[in-house]
Structure formats: C-alpha cells, structure tokens
C-alpha cells in the first residue's frame, strides 16, 4: 500500500494554492497535481516529509510559480466574458424590448432637444451620485448574498471591475468631453442628439446586462466557465 496524503495535508495544499490562484477549477487541478506529485515521491521514498516533498513539487512550477497559470487563465476567461455579455445582449432583443428600446431612444432624443447644454450637464451631475449610490448598494447586497460562495464572488468581482466600473469611467469621460464640445458650439445638432440618445440607451442596456442580468444567472455561467462548479457543492 502506497503512502497517501491525509485530509489535513490536502487541506494545507489547498490553502497554499488558493493564496495564489483564484479560479476554483484551476485551484482544484493544481491541488490534485501537487498531491499526485507528493504521493509519487512517497512511492520512491516513504520517509520524505510532507514539507520537503511539497517544496520539491512546487519548485517544478519554476520561478513564477502559479502566477503565470493564473494570469493566462484570466486572459482566456476574458474571451468567455465577452461572448457571454454579447449573447445576453443579443438575447435581450425580443420584440417588446426592441420597441421599448426604440421608444427610449426617441424619448431621450426629444428630451435633449428641450434641454439647454447647461441643463443637460446639471442633470447629469445630479444623476451621477444617484447611479453610484445604487451601484454601491446593489454590489453590497450581492456581496452579502454570495459571500459563502467564493467562486461566485470571484466571478462577480471580474464582472464588476472589468465590465462595469471601467466602462462607467470611460462613459463618464466621454460624456464630459462631448458636453464641453457642445458648449463650445452652443447647441446640439439633430444628428448629434440622435447619436447621443442611442449611445445612452445602448450603454444603459449594457449596464443592465452586466450588472443585473448576468449575476442572476451566475451559477449557469460559472459551470460553463469553470467546469466542476456543480460538484463543488457536494464535497
């Protein structure tokens, strides 16, 4: 009978791996890899201590350790996030939603026609804290809801950081740049009003999808992106 790792030792490996890698499917495969390596060493010599065997095995990952694996995985995942968001956006467009979207664009177009540029920037200035407060409150609510599931928290974190926070900052700077241009000209042309209305609605829709719709279906996407999510609950 070959010497096997105890549950505590596997737990130790797990704790070590989770410090360096945040995606759970990668975590579990690295834990398994390290465990296999250590047990293989014990086949040769049973008397090697767990710590020495562990260090020996970790050395094989080179100077960058798990870092490189984590980073590359993150890059591959981004592509999955893009497809996921794109699919959700396209899936959103059924007939009633299309009509509602077109109406929204038209409504904003009309509103922009009624407003002076100064009023628009003032309105936007008031809108920003309201939206920010809502985002912070909703993020906290999501965090409380999912704090037991690390996998979901990681999923949410990437979504909110890369696909909500950064786009918001970009949109904001684009908005102010446009406003200052409009102020110089003194008015907004018909054409610009349509474009602005369209962009605002599309961006609003994008936020709705990334911020609300996708987190609701997080479990489904998690199992697609990191297989084994369903099994995780059974251990």
């Amino acid at each position: 009978m070959n010497k096997k790792l105890t549950t505590e030792q596997i737990e130790d490996i797990y704790l070590f791996v989770t410090k360096h890698v945040e995606f759970y499917d990668v975590q579990m495969e690295l834990v398994d890899h390290m465990a296999n390596g250590i047990e293989e060493q014990w086949k040769e010599n049973e008397h090697v201590s767990f710590e020495i065997a562990f260090n020996e095995e970790f050395k094989k990952f080179g100077v960058s350790g798990f870092e490189n694996i984590q980073e590359e995985k993150y890059l591959f995942l981004k592509k999955r996030y893009h497809t996921m968001i794109w699919k959700e956006m396209v899936g959103f467009f059924k007939l009633p939603q299309v009509i509602a979207t077109v109406l929204m664009v038209y409504l904003i177009y009309l509103l922009l026609g009624l407003m002076e540029i100064g009023t628009l920037s003032l309105f936007y200035t008031y809108l920003v804290p309201v939206v920010l407060l809502f985002i912070i409150a909703y993020t906290l609510y999501q965090y409380r809801k999912y704090r037991r599931s690390k996998a979901k928290l990681v999923f949410q974190k990437i979504l909110y950081k890369d696909y909500v926070a950064i786009p918001l900052v970009l949109f904001n700077s684009l908005f102010w740049r446009s406003v200052s241009t409009f102020e110089k000209v003194g008015y907004m042309s018909e054409y610009m009003r349509w474009i602005t209305a369209f962009l605002m609605v599309v961006f609003g829709l994008y936020l709705f999808v990334t911020f609300i719709m996708i987190p609701i279906n997080a479990s489904k996407y998690l199992d697609e992106m990191h297989p084994g999510y369903k099994q995780l609950g059974k251990i």
């Binding site: 096997k4 790792l5 549950t7 596997i10 499917d25 579990m28 495969e29 834990v31 398994d32 465990a35 590359e72 591959f76 995942l77 592509k79 999955r80 297989p227 084994g228 099994q231 995780l232 059974k234 251990i235």
Partner: peptide
C-alpha cells in the same frame, strides 16, 4: 488555451478526497 478554444472538454471526478479535472 485548448479549453478556451473549445478543443477540449472538461470532466470533474472525485478521487482520493480531492477533485480531479
């Protein structure tokens, strides 16, 4: 990379108290 490109599929099994991918 192969996984991301859809060239391989993943299956998870429990072996010796740990998950194997």
């Amino acid at each position: 990379k192969l996984e991301a490109e859809g060239l391989v599929d993943v299956e998870v099994q429990q072996v010796d108290g740990r998950l194997r991918k």
